[in-house]
Amino acid sequence: MTVIDTEILSAGSDRRGDLASGKAETVLSVEGLTVGTGRADLVIDVSLEVRAGETLCLVGESGCGKSLTCLAAMGLTSEPLIVRQGRISFLGQNLSSLSENQLADIRGRDMAMIFQDATAALNPVRRVGMQIAEVLVVHRGLSWRQAEKQAIELIASVGIPEPDLRAKAFPHQLSGGMCQRIMIAMALACRPKLLIADEATTALDVTTQAQILRLMRELQAETDAAMIFVTHDLGVVAEIADRVAVMYSGRVVETATVDELFENPLHPYTRGLMACRLHATTTSHGRIAAIEGTVPSPSRRPEGCSFRPRCSFAKDTCLTLPALAPVVGNHRAACHFAGDFA
């Protein structure tokens, strides 16, 4: 678990006032996105929006469609996954209207992605400096010599000591945390307007995780990029998010600002997640709270609300699918009884 305490929560919220006004430009908007294989839909009717300088956290259990939503946003879904429906617009441009080569020009330059397992996500037989430089060669038209020089600066900027030496290393010669920093440096090489981090810190130990989160926040503040941060760790959410979208079984079930969400979770699933968090106090009770049951398989989702079989509040009305509707202000939840919790 991440170090999570109220100190970090309050430290984060100072920064959030600037965004609340909503004046910043919308960088990415996803409307009604449905992604699936031939057999089942894995992401259903997901709508998201993220503005410049804002961090949106996608939260949910493994397999709820978080990563897939991100891949679709980057246009990186490939067989057997198909985007069935939905519109993804990036800086006002409809991505589905672009050719693969036009998309390639945007990727890495205006939108970049940081993957979960950086050690595997880096090419094992090429030096890391070259891998970063390649982005600059392709998108900025730099010569290899210039690009490699700039790559060393980028490596330094993500806090790796002896950057000129590290640039010559192969991924297997670096630790997981270093590889993750290299990935971040690579993603930030062209100062993208949108940064998608898919479980970017999950594989790292707590100390490294905290360092990387701080680093990403600093770099984001510097470039005013929009960021989508995928995680299943509420500690990370508290630390980095401005707004949160909670996903369950392929759908967004709740969206709110991070403060609203932590103060007053409206969806029973979110409430369950919150209860599962490890507090310093829980250890004395000895038992860790858990949500009963398991996530339904995408091919066998229950009728109506997917969370119904695991929900202690479920009634007959839950057999009809609840819409993701505003409950308090812009705090939305897909639950028939969300109003009762407000």
């Binding site: 990727r107 890495g108 880096l122 090419n123």
Partner: peptide, 14 residues
């Protein structure tokens, strides 16, 4: 392999 997806995410052409 994951690094091939990275290469695509970096905006490299085929």
């Amino acid at each position: 392999q994951p690094y091939m997806r990275t290469a695509r995410a970096k905006g490299l052409r085929l």
